[in-house]
């Protein structure tokens, strides 16, 4: 075979500022592309190789570890203000491989592959014998707890009827026997007090997401639920291109007139907390 010129990569320190810059661009990429769950933050840079790229630039080949934060992925809170989920809360780690192009001082992600995994139950038990462990999202108690919590939230709502987007986290808590759940919701074009058939409600064109935390406590002869939801500001409708390429103006939702105006934020707040509803 013809002799190929040796491929040469540049070794770089994992804590080198340039490496960290590339890793932070990679973490932002994760959080911008996650479809659900929680934002992740950089925990450790495992490996880095810097390959030359013809005709110009360099490709940073990175292996990074991340940790899940407590911020839901659609929460507008800046990542720097998001708390890292602690070991006692049953932490979740991400392992990612990235290729990040550096050209003209700019970093661009070329390739990303990540997977996340929760800490082992044994490790959680080591640091906190009585802490709750993560439960499967399709666990019947989890689904029931979310159902009861969302019903309680909609029952007290004076505005839109909110429907479930995803169950993002759940734990069985031993004492008192209860189920702790976190889930995402979105406003629909129905008025909560007037809903007869939730299946007829549609998500608003201008998405308004919310994030709820709830505890369903079992007791003799029944159950108690406490739920608190944080509603995020509405997200503008992405412009839809007409066949000839022109952008369509925001389609107004027909139910807008039926709904009370969304709570005006003054000054605009990123989120409105509703609850706890017991």
């Amino acid at each position: 075979a013809p002799h190929l010129p040796g491929l040469v990569y540049r070794e770089l320190n994992c804590d080198d500022p340039e490496t960290e810059q590339a890793a932070l661009v990679a973490v932002d990429y994760i959080n911008d592309h996650l479809l659900g769950g929680y934002k992740h933050t950089l925990n450790q840079i495992d490996k880095v190789k810097v390959w030359p790229r013809r005709p110009m630039g360099e490709v940073f080949e990175l292996e990074i570890d991340t940790l899940e934060t407590t911020c839901y992925v659609r929460d507008p809170t800046p990542l720097a203000n998001c708390t890292v989920r602690q070991l006692t809360e049953h932490a979740v780690e991400g392992d990612c491989d990235f290729q990040v192009l550096k050209q003209d001082g700019q970093f661009t992600v070329l390739f990303a592959k990540c997977h996340s995994s929760p800490d082992s139950a044994e490790d959680v038990r080591k640091v906190c014998p009585q802490c709750g462990l993560l439960a499967p999202m399709n666990d019947t108690k989890v689904v029931h707890a979310v159902d009861v919590a969302l019903t309680a939230f909609n029952t007290q709502s004076n505005g839109s009827y909110f429907q479930l987007v995803e169950i993002s986290r759940a734990q069985h808590v031993p004492l008192p026997p209860s189920t702790y759940v976190e889930f995402a919701v979105a406003a629909t074009d129905c008025v909560a007090k007037e809903v007869t058939d939730p299946a007829k409600c549609n998500l608003l064109a201008e998405k308004q997401y919310g994030f709820c935390k709830a505890t369903l406590t079992e007791k003799v002869g029944g159950e108690d639920v406490a739920v608190t939801c944080t509603l995020f500001q509405t997200q503008p409708v992405p412009p839809q291109l007409q066949p000839d390429g022109t952008e369509m103006s925001n389609p107004t939702s027909v139910a807008d007139s039926a709904l009370p105006p969304p709570p005006q934020a003054d000054p605009p707040v990123a989120a409105l907390v509703v609850g706890p509803v017991v």
Binding site: A1, H3, L4, P5, G6, L7, V8, Y9, R10, E11, L12, N13, C14, D15, D16, T19, E20, T41, L42, N43, Q44, I45, D46, K47, V48, L67, V84, L87, A91, E93, D119, D123
Partner: peptide, 27 residues
């Protein structure tokens, strides 16, 4: 057989071995 191109590491100051520092905690 296709010769595997030899990968040569550029000479330079030895970078401190990776992995880098842990910013929060290790699972």
């Amino acid at each position: 057989n296709v010769a595997q191109p030899s990968i040569v590491v550029a000479a330079g100051p030895m970078a401190r071995p990776c992995p880098g520092r842990i910013r929060h905690f290790k699972i």
